[in-house]
Amino acid sequence: MSDFDELYQEIIRDHYKHPRNRVPLGKDCPAFDNPSCGDRVKFLIEWEGEGEGAVIKAVNFDGSGCSISMSSTSMMTELLAGKTRKQALEIVDHFLGIVHGERDSGDLEEMGDVIALGGVIKLPVRVKCATLSWNGMKRLLSAS
């Protein structure tokens, strides 16, 4: 497998070409961007239930960017569905911890398709692509 194929695994390319939970979103949805490259992502979270027991019914996103940032976003939306705010934050923190080298990269194995981002973690210049939506989601879940 070449360096490129390792970085851009089939799962990544599939999520880029066929993003999950991607819908056109309006101006009032919270947006997060990466000023250094212009990548941008917006979210609309649908909740089910009330209070602390409420779970995420769906994370809808819209945005533009490279295949790393967009596929990473698509994977994240799949992972967070059905989770409470607390659980979702734990997942996001778990991922960011791995990417920032605070946790073992082997821990990605518990995260479904996200394991395909393993190659990106080794490339400091691409880490900001992979983390754009996760950092945004962390702010969103922590704020509301």
Partner: peptide
Amino acid sequence: HAHDMAAFLDSR
């Protein structure tokens, strides 16, 4: 995306 183009060229 230009980043993907650059990454592909880099792999060569």
